[in-house]
């Protein structure tokens, strides 16, 4: 096979990269030694292939990276599209209902705490002096109610425990009983039932007077 200039061009890259087989390489070199044009071309391509990878890269324009980041990372402020459909859809979502409920509950608690009647709200209700006064009054009231409730509970449980002790302990002999205790087993049972039914509303003094435990307390 005759090695032509076309063959040289077609196999030039392989020749320069040392990928030609020995026989083809010999034919190529024989042709290059005879053909000045192909020899010059091979020299130029060899030189170019060596220079191209070392060309200085183009300098990236300043600000390009920043603009790309701005365009892709979401920091670009896009005008949100608002339509009635999106608004209504948002309002029907469970998250919105939950939020609305939370706001309503918070307002209710605040109005209760500040003593504001939601049906008759006036500008005077939001006067800082009135707000402070109402909050202070409500705080004291709440504290007083709490203290009273705890006291009532304490008395009632104390009495109940005494009654339980009385029902478990054997009745002492009549001569050993204190002379001031007029309670009989029937009246004791009656008072016990009365206490259980009336609860903490019964005053401690009435209970103690009935059971004769006033001296003990």
């Amino acid at each position: 096979m005759t090695w032509t200039c076309i063959n040289s061009e077609e196999r030039l890259a392989e020749y320069l990269e040392g990928q030609l087989e020995a026989a083809e390489r010999a034919q190529m070199e024989a042709h290059l030694s005879e053909c000045a044009a192909c020899r010059a071309l091979a020299a130029q391509v060899r030189w170019l292939s060596g220079r191209l990878p070392h060309l200085e890269p183009e300098v990236v324009p300043s600000g390009l990276v920043f603009r790309i980041l701005e365009a892709t990372s979401g920091s670009v402020r896009r005008k949100p599209e608002i339509s009635w459909k999106t608004v209504l859809t948002g309002m029907l979502s469970p998250r919105f209902a939950l939020g609305l409920g939370s706001v309503a509950a918070t307002l209710f608690i605040l109005f209760q705490a500040l003593g504001i009647n939601p049906k008759k709200i006036t500008a005077e209700d939001f006067n800082p002096v009135n707000l402070y006064r109402a909050a202070d009054q409500q705080a004291h009231l709440t504290y007083a109610r709490g203290v009273r409730f705890v006291n009532d509970l304490r008395v009632v449980y104390e009495i109940r425990s005494r009654l339980q002790e009385a029902s478990v302990t054997p009745t002492p002999a009549p001569e050993q009983q204190p002379p001031k205790n007029p309670a009989s087993p029937q009246s004791e049972q009656k008072l016990k039932n009365d206490l259980l039914h009336r609860g903490p509303a019964m005053t401690a003094s009435a209970l103690l007077a009935g059971t004769g435990l006033g001296g003990a307390l």
């Binding site: 061009e9 077609e10 030039l12 890259a13 010059a40 071309l41 020299a43 130029q44 170019l48 292939s49």
Partner: peptide, 24 residues
């Protein structure tokens, strides 16, 4: 791929030669 790279280099080399750029 190989064919295109080869032909591309050859064309580039010819153009550079025409522009007066030659190897040492």
């Amino acid at each position: 791929v190989k064919s295109r790279i080869n032909r591309g280099r050859i064309e580039l080399a010819r153009l550079l030669t025409q522009m007066g750029v030659q190897p040492e």
